[in-house]
């Protein structure tokens, strides 16, 4: 991690100006504000910090946030792979629209997604009512959180797997078939190993996004402490109670988790591009 100062000589002008402005923006917008988190945490004693991040309510919120984000990412990996597969391999009516629709969770404001999902799955909603008759409650339960997180995470899996699927060499499959492999064997032994790094990257990105998600969750979650309360919500609750240090401590924990994920995603991406 060397400081980006050493550079090769080039005839193209403007390196100093462009780099200077880039570093300035980065410092002012990202680095200085983020470092504030750590300065604030430094004002807490170790014990107070530990108590804040390990109180029962917080522990339960971790379980909910991490557990449901993980489950959502798993669901996305499965369905995302199917969606990417049919978009790349098959033709069917309205394929263009289906392809574009995958990006809707990127483009739709999370608050809109939140109220739409909450209304759909409310006990009186289009889907909530029939599901309630089956004894399944979605809105205002952890299941609702899962649904919202699946919604926001889907594009990540599809959009990471899709280009890899498109680039797969057709003749490799044909060779496998000519050597007598069944379609199933080809998928498991030839295709899956090639798309697996991308699938894992998509999974990790979807997980990271779900972990931090706030807007689409709070409307459908019900936000019951210890049951359906996620960490980002807990941070805002602490903020509203003017417990800035408490909020900061939780934020640091989440931030570190994000760093680890970001690192993991970078490694995964290198791995998948090397394949």
């Amino acid at each position: 991690m060397r400081i980006p100062l050493l550079r090769q000589h080039s005839v193209l002008p403007g390196f100093g100006l462009a780099m200077g402005w880039t570093l300035f923006c980065l410092a002012v917008v990202v680095l200085i504000p983020l470092s504030g988190l750590f300065f604030k945490t430094a004002t807490m004693t170790g014990e107070a910090f530990w108590q804040t991040i390990s109180s029962p309510r917080v522990i339960n919120a971790y379980k909910i946030s991490f557990g449901i984000a993980f489950a959502a990412a798993l669901i996305n990996a499965f369905f995302g792979l199917i969606v990417a597969w049919i978009l790349v391999r098959y033709t069917f009516p309205f394929k263009r629209i289906v392809d574009a629709a995958v990006d809707l969770p990127f483009a739709l404001p999370t608050a809109v997604a939140g109220i739409a999902l909450a209304t759909l799955y409310a006990p009186q909603g289009w889907l909530g009512k029939p599901l309630a008759e089956l004894g399944i409650k979605v809105a205002f339960t952890p299941l609702g959180i899962l649904l919202a997180l699946v919604f926001v995470g889907l594009p990540f899996v599809v959009r990471t797997v899709q280009p890899i699927l498109e680039d797969l060499e057709k003749d490799v499959e044909e060779v496998a078939a000519s050597l007598g492999a069944s379609r199933r064997q080809i998928f498991c032994r030839v295709l899956l190993p090639q798309i697996f790094p991308a699938l894992l990257t998509g999974f990790a990105m979807s997980f990271a996004r779900a972990l931090g998600e706030y807007g689409s969750v709070i409307f459908i979650a019900g936000n019951l402490p210890n049951v359906s309360e996620i960490i980002p919500l807990l941070i805002t609750i602490k903020l509203e109670q003017y417990d800035y240090t408490g909020a900061t401590a939780l934020a640091v924990v989440m931030l570190l988790a994000s760093f680890v994920l970001l690192l993991l995603i970078n490694i995964l991406q290198k791995w998948s591009s090397r394949q």
Binding site: L34, G36, G212, E213, G215, P232, L239, M254
Partner: peptide
């Protein structure tokens, strides 16, 4: 570093400016 804001929860991005 440029990617960082993608990885940070939106709630935290608001929080840092309050701090």
């Amino acid at each position: 570093l440029i990617d960082l804001p993608f990885a940070v929860s939106p709630v935290i991005s608001g929080l840092v400016y309050i701090l």
